[in-house]
Amino acid sequence: MQQLSESQAMRYARQVALPGMDLDGQEKLLNAHVVIVGMGGLGCSCAQMLAAAGVGHLSLVDGDTVSRSNLSRQVLFNQAHLEQLKVCAAQTLLRALNPDLRLDVYDQFANEALLAELLGQADLLVDCTDNRAVREQINRTALAANKPWVSGGAIRMEGQVMSFVPAANAPCYGCYSQLFGDTESGCAENGVLTPLVGIIGSMQALEVIKLICGLGTIHIGKIQHIDGLAGQWRELTLPKLANCKACQPVL
C-alpha cells in the first residue's frame, strides 16, 4: 500500500480537509485502480476529474481515433491530436494534470475477455461508452467479478448517472435495458450539447470517489436524470426485475 508523500498531501489539501475524507481517504484514492471504458465526451471529463482528484491508477479502453467533431466536447483532445488514437492522445493532458498517475491504455474496443481481465485487477469500472451492447457486456462481467461500476449517458440535452453495486437486492443494467427497445441512438445522429458531458462525466467521478473512499451514500437502484432544456434533475428508482436474464440466477 502506497503512502501519500508530503508534496501529495499539500496538493490534495482541499480534499484531505473534508470531514470523512482525511489522509486515509486520499490514500485510498492513491491506491485505487479504475477502468474507464470509452474516451469520448464522458470519458474525457471523468478521467480529467479522477486524475486531478488523485486516483493512482487509470486504465483507459477505446479503439477510436480523434475526429474533428469530437473536439467540441472531448476536452482532453485538440487539433494536434486529429487521427490519433484517443487513448494515446488522452495521455498528454492526464499526465500533465497528475505526474504521479499510473496510466495503462488499451487501444481497442471493449470485449468481454478484456473487461474480465481488467475488472479482475481493478477496483471498479466507469462506463463512458455510447452504446447498449457494450454496457450489456460490462454488466455481465461486473456481475461475474462482483465489482461495482458507474454508468453514465449523455445525448441531446439529456444525461443520467447510475451506480451498480454488488448486492443481493441491487438491480443490474439488464433490469434497466429490458425496459426499452433495441433502437440505438448515438450522439452522431442525435447530437449532444457540450456541457452535458462535463456534468455527467463529473457526476460519474463523484460516485467513483465515494465508492473508493466509502464516503457518503450510494443509493442502490437510483438513477439521477437531468433534463438539460429545463435545467432540472429527477431521481428515478430502478427496481430489480424479477425475471432479469442478467442478474437472476437460473435455478
Binding site: 433502437t183 441512438s185 438513477i223 431521481e235
Partner: peptide, 14 residues
C-alpha cells in the same frame, strides 16, 4: 415504438 421509458411515481416500470 418501444423506445420510451415509463415511470409510475418516479419508479421505472414495465
Amino acid at each position: 415504438n418501444g423506445n420510451t421509458l415509463a415511470a409510475i411515481n418516479h419508479t421505472l416500470c414495465q
